[in-house]
């Protein structure tokens, strides 16, 4: 065994420990704590519904829907956006967070992007469950869509892991990456169909929207859940793109991880 070489099982256990610690920090035991993970999307739906439809008078797409439909559609966008944006911002400082540990023991760096993935994936999944329930109650859920959901989320997780790996490497060598990511994620919010449907985007801007990696999964989820349809071209595109990002991220991470400790 090489010094500090860790078997896969150990890596998994370490990952589980780090993830549980991170989640404990995020949802502290007492008080609202764990309930917040379900409470937050409910509060958000209420706010989106009341402010965006009640105050600003916005409508979802071309057809007439109940106001809560708007809130749920926005929440789909927000759920994906939150996961992606947090992944981008947090990843840039991911390696440096463990600088102290790295001076003492050999850190299994490759676990870290997946811990981050777990951290952002959990609220995303909870949000989607709340959305499913909400759509079910209001009677607009297309049952087939529930089965389509995994094939959309899985590549999105690959994308997240790839971006986390890539960004954490870049964060080691470009320390001000965090700032840039803050800005980028803000831009992304309005470059993706988060607060509106792709239907109302004018033809000239659609191409631009497709630059955002969120556009395809967000729109696909909406269409799958309400219409029970799955665009195979988009699906193929999503899987290909995500796999490429994932592989690239892992490769670059593997190549550079030996030099992470140089900067500490």
């Amino acid at each position: 065994m090489l010094p500090g070489d860790l078997t896969n099982k150990r890596r998994l256990r370490i990952g589980v420990y780090w993830l549980s610690q991170a989640l404990k920090r995020r949802y502290p035991g007492r008080g609202i704590g764990v309930w917040w993970i379900v409470l937050a999307p409910l509060v958000l739906v209420t706010i989106y519904t009341s402010v965006l439809t009640g105050v600003m008078g916005l409508r979802w797409g071309m057809e007439e829907h109940a106001p809560v439909y708007f809130g749920l559609m926005v929440l789909i966008g927000v759920a994906y956006y939150q996961a992606f944006s947090e992944c981008l911002i947090r990843a840039s400082g991911l390696i440096h967070e463990k600088a102290n540990l790295a001076r003492k023991v050999k850190v299994p760096w490759e676990v870290l992007p997946f811990v981050l993935l777990g951290e952002v994936a959990l609220p995303l999944i909870c949000n989607l469950i709340v959305i499913l329930v909400g759509l079910g109650i209001t009677g607009v859920l297309h049952p087939v869509g529930v089965f389509y959901l995994p094939v959309i989320i899985l590549p999105f997780f690959l994308l997240l892991a790839g971006c986390a790996a890539l960004n954490s490497v870049l964060g080691v060598f470009f320390r001000d990456l965090g700032q840039l990511m803050n800005f980028l994620s803000m831009a992304l919010l309005f470059m993706s169909p988060v607060f509106f449907s792709m239907d109302i985007v004018p033809e000239s801007l659609r191409q631009l929207m497709l630059v955002s990696p969120l556009t395809i999964p967000v729109e696909m989820t909406r269409i799958a859940l309400t219409d029970g349809e799955l665009n195979t071209v988009w699906l193929l595109l999503l899987w290909t793109l995500s796999s490429v990002v994932f592989m690239a991220g892992m490769l670059i991470f593997r190549l550079t991880r030996e030099s992470f400790a140089d900067g500490f």
């Binding site: 080691v172 060598f173 470009f174 320390r175 030099s259 140089d262």
Partner: peptide, 17 residues
């Protein structure tokens, strides 16, 4: 010990090992 541990050069050096 590399003096430059940040920036494009350091990144390329790490990438090419």
């Amino acid at each position: 010990q590399p003096v430059v541990v940040e920036g494009g050069h350091a990144f390329l050096r790490a990438l090419t090992r």
